[in-house]
Design a protein around this nucleic acid. Sequence first.
DNA 1: TCGTTCTTTATACAGTCGTATAACAGACGA
DNA 2: TCGTCTGTTATACGACTGTATAAAGAACGA
Lengths: 241, 241
Amino acid sequence: MVNKPAQRPQNEQLHSPKAVTPTRKSFQRLADADRRRALLEATLDCIGEAGASGASARRIAERAGVTAGLIRHHFGSMDEMVRQAYAHLMTQLTSEAAEAARAGGDSPEAALARFVAANVMQPNLSPRKVSLWATFIGRVDGEAGYSVIHRDSYREFLEVLTRLIHPVLVKHGRPSSPEACRSLAIALNGLIDGLWLEGSLDHGLYDPHRLPGIALSAAEGLLRLPDTALLRHLTDLPPQD
Amino acid sequence: MVNKPAQRPQNEQLHSPKAVTPTRKSFQRLADADRRRALLEATLDCIGEAGASGASARRIAERAGVTAGLIRHHFGSMDEMVRQAYAHLMTQLTSEAAEAARAGGDSPEAALARFVAANVMQPNLSPRKVSLWATFIGRVDGEAGYSVIHRDSYREFLEVLTRLIHPVLVKHGRPSSPEACRSLAIALNGLIDGLWLEGSLDHGLYDPHRLPGIALSAAEGLLRLPDTALLRHLTDLPPQD
DNA sequence: TCGTTCTTTATACAGTCGTATAACAGACGA
DNA sequence: TCGTCTGTTATACGACTGTATAAAGAACGA
């Protein structure tokens, strides 16, 4: 799993004779926040491409164009950096989806429809993102630091969803108590998560372009809205290549 | 991440002086199938408890009560064993859920309700199972061997679901063409996956006991069934502690 | 009871892991 | 232009990785 015996010697070219005066790699100093972000994104890149086992300190550092020692300097430990990369990812994910709902100030139905659809369309529908997400989810149970990040980001997502659902329910005269809203938000979140997941993995069993339609139709039924209450906003959406 | 510096020396007691006549560990030979199953289950245990990084060949072997060399003997490589452990897990998961639907030969609605509910109740609702599942899902993109296992098990699940949905739609006079069934199965699968996932992780944001009710109510809406068409079978279900 | 078979143990190996430490050098104020 | 600060590189260390190999011993037929 680790030991692919014959690896390239990786001599890196452009080295001066080296035995005489061992010249060092030139570098530039960055502000703490900038270097941290670069490392976090390199971490996500590595995990996304090669999985958790392929994301070693040395490999991440190389990806970020620095040496491995910097990890300790900026994050204290590898573990801590990976944890922060998870938080970084989840912040990105939910903020991107929430932004999709804000774009355009139409009816409550339109906003909800855009949000639901955006979660099962590119760029959110992405094997890389699902791989990353899944890798981290695998650590939520048992590793305390991960579970609080998960809980926080899940709560955030539920709240966004609740704020989108409530006005729609009111407008259509459906029960809209906090409890009703919450149950529906939980269910709708499940639907979105599951479709996003399977759609992203792109197993070839169906065309992912069908997902926005499937998701919106299911959401209508789930919320007991009249047919096409959400679906009719599908044409507003940006085209899918 | 790997190097917890001060590990127990792990001397194992019950050793004869050892320098004189180096006695070997006693063992018993097992049939190939039995030893393989034992190793696969030890693999799942290790990944479930410590994550992918904690599931080394030596640790898995120790868990199974053997030495690491056996992995090569029975599986050829560590990678191959882990892949087969994934297939083993997915077979378990879907067959357990399908069995829940078979138990009791009532109406189509009851069978569907049992299946949906079983997926969001113990013992399917389990942090261990979600952790395992997520860890493997993280490898589906990019590692070819995993993607075919994923596709096969997903297709299997979809087919089970379709067979359960169809008679219910017919009975209630809803559209039941293959295409309609398939779209609904995809959506319902998403709902089940998502609720199973979040419920298993048990973030403390709501009581998982509410999940069967939420899932069944959402499924009713999703399939456009009359209210309580599925929910009224909830009382048949085995009590949740 | 002896031989044979082949699962299993034991050990060695090269490579990678995370991280601690010390020397270097970029950036900036004086 | 020189010092100072500290972000960064380089290197060493011990633990652990997967796997290849050979010896051992459990099970079973004759």
